[in-house]
Write a protein that binds this DNA or RNA. Structure first.
Lengths: 182, 182
DNA sequence: GAGAGCATGTAATCAGTTACATGATTAC
DNA sequence: GTAATCATGTAACTGATTACATGCTCTC
């Protein structure tokens, strides 16, 4: 996962390890975190797989390493970005992919979001069924247990809203709730 | 994390490892998953720490092991459940805790949710600032990058809605969007 | 000259998965 | 009799964190 995100940031610019961490923190930090302890070994692995190259630059007394994506790396990244059977797709993993969708054609991005939306709708139905079961049983004693279920349902619904707006490249502000008092 | 969740399910009933997995899958499966490969070693560890005891029962030819929480285990669980400085609190971790809030007094549950809400509001303000920056820059080229930011904001807003409803033990159905056509 | 930020890395550890391995019991 | 489910576990591996270790460069 992180390997692909690194490739994604290298897709547009050559960066140092340090830069990459900053990009990840600021760009997809909501969905993924990295520590240097995992980043640098990962960069070595990417180099061994020939998905990136590395060139040392000496600025004054300090050596910095700039990483550049290779053609093979670009292919691997694009493959991941458009993969139909992207299985371990938690919403976080999905959003980390969407972050790079500006690199795709509109049609491709649309299709991927649509596929994800379809899967979510199935899942939402399951949750709604589960919720009904709980309500039948009329379990007032389990208020918080039920509330976590409601949370799950709301979450899916809000992702679905996001999908429908983003898919059409509508004005994202329609997602915001205006009537918010705090 | 999983250790506490296991203790939570044992808090009310003695269970086998197999049962615990079912409870986790069905109860907090939205937030956490377990495999047997992590569950059984974890149960051993809990036993070493004397947070659970284990008794073998022989049903016919099959040996089953029932796990029971100890007093110490109950204390450790309750400590976790009410901990003020619960740092690694992703929303998933938080919700996994809320799942067990029926074990708390209303006042305690209220206070914990309120604290979480306060933190989220600060975070939301940060995200809104970041969003404004993007808009100032008027980056139409980065539609999807911005859309993931909107997603983050919507997510936080929907958690805040959940907090305000749940905190007051209001009817959870008010969280549902009625005007939903699909 | 001090502190923030730039820059790279290792070692120990932790938390978890996947695949393997086995076999009993129940419901149809 | 067979398939689903009950039931427990190990071994190899993966992916990541935390703490440690070092030292330069820029800005005030």
């Amino acid at each position: 996962m992180l390997e692909y995100i690194i490739l994604g940031f290298l897709y547009q610019n050559s960066l140092t390890g340090y830069d990459i961490k900053k990009c990840i923190d600021q760009g997809v930090g909501m969905f993924y975190r990295v520590s240097y302890g995992s980043l640098y070994p990962l960069l070595d692995r990417l180099r061994n797989k020939e998905l990136v190259t590395c060139s040392s630059e000496i600025k004054g007394k300090r050596e910095t390493k700039k990483y550049e994506i290779t053609d093979k790396g670009q292919q691997v990244f694009m493959q991941w970005l458009t993969e139909e059977e992207y299985e371990n797709s938690s919403i976080e993993a999905f959003m980390a992919r969407v972050y790079f969708f500006d690199l795709l054609t509109e049609a491709t991005a649309f299709a991927i979001i649509q596929r994800y939306e379809a899967k979510l709708k199935v899942y939402l139905q399951e949750l709604l069924k589960k919720k009904e079961k709980y309500e039948e049983a009329g379990r007032q004693r389990y208020y918080y247990k039920v509330s976590t279920l409601y949370f799950g349902i709301c979450k899916i619904q809000s992702i679905l809203d996001w999908c429908s707006v983003t898919k059409q490249k509508e004005d994202l502000n329609t997602l915001m709730k205006v009537e918010r008092e705090d």
